[in-house]
């Protein structure tokens, strides 16, 4: 089976659906037309751009360009983690914690998958490396963002409770034990839902893509299982690291709760 080509007309027909949605909302007095149009145009441009980049990247297939692409993806994901926080950790610490915890885990796990498990020749073959890193980053970005958001927002709201524990002689670690466990749970819930829904409620995107491209279903399923494990591990370790670093930043060297290090809304 060959992939059916999509013409510009085909895509325009799909875009008309979104436009119709915008018009219906406009008539109902919900001013979302603007956001829908901007979001749709932005998405189209981003994807066309990445298509061009991938095309030349696949032709070059050179370790330097693949690494550069990976770094750009990582930097953007690091920014997205902090951008969605209600009470982000202020300054370069906030960006650094998201970037470091995501970078270390996503890079380690992607490299492990490429070099030890999938073993394409060469190991940095962009057709494998870039989509793999993209899927892992996209998921860890959400997980780490949720975990950090829970950590900082709950710490902000529980100042009196946390300080009460410090005042009775607990260490910062003891006073935040439940908070850190809850933040980890918040970060992992989307992944746990994904694991539970896989195959039954949703056919995961990569598997669908491979099947559309003509792969045998059992081969596509094996890749999907691999990705699920990689995403779960990356998300879990990334959230753990982010919570550890974030919780340390909430206290100073005298174990005082420093909510002044969190930004406002």
């Amino acid at each position: 089976m060959n992939l059916e080509q999509l013409s510009v007309l085909d895509l325009s027909l799909a875009a008309v659906l979104v436009l119709a949605l915008g018009l219906v909302q406009l008539m109902m007095g919900l001013g979302l037309l603007r956001s829908l149009v901007i979001g749709s145009v932005r998405m189209t441009l981003q994807l066309l751009l990445v298509g061009l980049v991938l095309k030349s990247l696949f032709e070059a297939a050179n370790l330097g360009w693949v690494s550069l692409m990976a770094l750009v993806m990582l930097a953007l994901a690091g920014y997205e983690v902090t951008a969605r926080q209600k009470r982000p950790i202020k300054g370069w610490h906030g960006y650094g914690i998201g970037l470091l915890s995501m970078g270390v885990t996503a890079a380690t796990i992607t490299l492990f998958a490429l070099i030890v498990i999938i073993e394409p020749q060469p190991w940095y073959t962009p057709q494998y490396a870039i989509p793999l890193l993209g899927m892992i980053l996209g998921n860890t970005m959400t997980g780490i963002g949720l975990a950090l958001n829970h950590l900082t927002q709950t710490a902000w709201a529980s100042r009196v409770k946390i300080e009460a524990r410090l005042l009775l002689g607990q260490t910062a670690d003891e006073a935040t034990a439940e908070l850190r466990a809850d933040a980890l749970r918040a970060g992992l819930i989307p992944t746990l839902n994904m694991l539970a829904a896989a195959g039954l409620i949703s056919l995961p995107g990569m598997m669908t893509g491979q099947i559309l491209a003509g792969a045998a279903p059992m081969d596509a399923v094996r890749y999907q299982i691999l990705i699920m494990f990689l995403i779960t591990a990356a998300n879990g370790f990334g959230s753990l690291l982010a919570i550890h670093l974030g919780a340390r930043r909430l206290f100073d060297e005298r174990a005082r709760l420093r909510l002044d290090r969190l930004g406002g809304t």
Partner: peptide
Amino acid sequence: RPEQWRRRVGYVPAESGWW
């Protein structure tokens, strides 16, 4: 150490925390 200090110098704020 801060936790040692706070055990010896106990502070009860106006609003008490219960976790």
